[in-house]
Simulated assay, not measured.
Amino acid sequence: MCVEKTPWEQVIDFHGHTCPQISLGYRVAQIAMRELGIRPTPGTELMVTAQTHSCALDAFQVLNHATYGRGSLIVNEKKLHRYLFEYSGTPVRVEISVQPDIVEHLVIPEHLSTREKQNATLEAIQFILGSEETAFCTIQKG
């Protein structure tokens, strides 16, 4: 019997492990798709511009089908967790900026023991995935 994986499981498989930044990317990718709605025309492609290199980008590749190889995933490094999702050739776009309080949970201190790192990682993921959307990010549609 074949069991279909959930979107979360697909992202984790692609990325290789769970971490706070992959949960951030997962959440941003879902918000973006909800806000963008249905693709305007069959010929349009979703373009994603990120303002930081991070594990979050892997979630965009899996869930939003925006990839480096096709040139639909671009990084304009500014060390900001701000992401622009737009359909090519259309004015359909949404910018998602992650709140600073959320970003603080992305880094797990190195001085922790292995068990403490695991616990801190799980707590950060739960915090990121469970935060109220208004506390998680700001959304601007254009």
Rank of each mutant, 00 (worst) to 15 (best):
P100D: 00
I102F: 04
E104T: 08
H111A: 13
R70N: 09
E9R: 11
S72L: 15
L57H: 05
G89D: 02
H81R: 09
Q99M: 15
L84G: 13
E77T: 08
L84P: 10
V92D: 15
F14I: 12
K79R: 15
L57S: 05
E4L: 05
P42E: 06
E123P: 04
I74K: 02
F136H: 00
I125P: 08
K141E: 14
K79G: 13
I108C: 05
K117N: 03
E110C: 13
V103H: 05
M1F: 08
E95Q: 14
T134E: 06
V107H: 01
H17G: 06
H105E: 15
T114E: 15
D101H: 09
T90E: 01
E132L: 14
Q140V: 02
N119K: 00
V92R: 15
T49N: 14
Y87C: 12
D58G: 01
Q126S: 13
C55Y: 10
H111E: 12
K141S: 14
L122M: 12
Q118V: 11
R93I: 01
S131W: 00
L73W: 01
M33V: 02
A32Q: 09
I102L: 07
Q126V: 11
S113K: 12
I31T: 07
T44H: 01
I102V: 13
R70Q: 06
H15E: 03
K5S: 14
K141P: 08
I31E: 07
N76Y: 13
V98I: 13
L129G: 03
L46C: 00
T49F: 10
A56F: 05
T138M: 12
T121A: 00
Q118N: 13
T49A: 13
E104I: 06
T121W: 02
H53N: 15
A120M: 12
P42C: 08
C55V: 12
E95R: 14
M33L: 09
F85Y: 15
G69W: 04
T114F: 14
T41C: 10
T41P: 10
E95Y: 10
A124L: 10
I125R: 09
G25K: 01
T44E: 03
L36Q: 01
P100C: 04
A29F: 07
E77F: 02
E104D: 06
A124F: 11
Y83T: 12
N64M: 15
Q99H: 13
F127C: 04
K117D: 03
Q21A: 05
L73Y: 01
V48W: 02
E133R: 06
V48P: 00
T90I: 00
P109D: 14
H15L: 04
H53C: 12
L63F: 08
V28H: 05
A120P: 07
M1S: 10
A50H: 08
Q118K: 15
T52H: 05
G16D: 02
A50Y: 08
M1T: 11
I12A: 05
A124R: 08
S72C: 10
S88A: 14
I31W: 06
G16Y: 00
G71L: 06
I102G: 03
L112G: 03
L84R: 13
I96H: 00
P42M: 08
S23M: 07
E132V: 12
V94D: 06
G25H: 00
L122A: 08
V3A: 11
R82Y: 11
S131F: 00
P109H: 07
L122Q: 13
H15G: 02
Y68S: 00
G71T: 07
Q61C: 05
L84Q: 14
V98F: 11
K117T: 05
C137W: 01
H17E: 09
